[in-house]
Computed example of a mutant assay.
Amino acid sequence: MPRTHIQTLPLRARPGVVARLVTAVTTFADRRRDRQRLGQLDTHLLRDIGLDVQDARRESDKPFWQP
């Protein structure tokens, strides 16, 4: 039976995979936290940042993976 050689790439040959994963997880966590806080603001504070209640609710209801 002929022998075949399968070449594999070590993990370090793929730079940035872990860094991109960490960045994505951090972004998702930040979005989730920010949207939760936005949903807790009262009308007065929403007006201060230029949003109405419907806009704030629409944004805070989005899942964390949606930009």
Rank of each mutant, 00 (worst) to 15 (best):
T4D: 07
D55A: 15
F28Y: 06
L46K: 03
M1V: 09
M1F: 11
P10F: 04
A29R: 14
G39M: 01
V53D: 09
M1S: 15
L41E: 07
L45H: 06
P10K: 10
R12E: 14
T23D: 09
V53I: 14
L11C: 06
V22A: 12
F64R: 11
R14A: 09
R35T: 03
R37D: 04
T8V: 12
Q54L: 08
D42I: 02
R31K: 15
S60M: 04
T8H: 04
V18Q: 05
L46A: 02
P10I: 05
L21V: 12
V17Y: 01
G39P: 00
V25H: 05
T8P: 00
T8D: 01
D34V: 12
D48G: 14
S60D: 12
D52E: 02
T26H: 06
D61P: 00
A29K: 08
V53H: 03
D34W: 09
V17Q: 03
D30C: 02
G50Q: 05
V17M: 02
D48R: 15
A29S: 14
A56G: 11
V25R: 15
A29C: 07
P15D: 01
T26P: 02
R57Y: 10
T23V: 09
R37W: 04
R47E: 15
H44P: 00
G39N: 06
S60G: 03
R3I: 14
G16P: 03
V17N: 01
R37H: 12
R37K: 05
T26Q: 10
R32H: 14
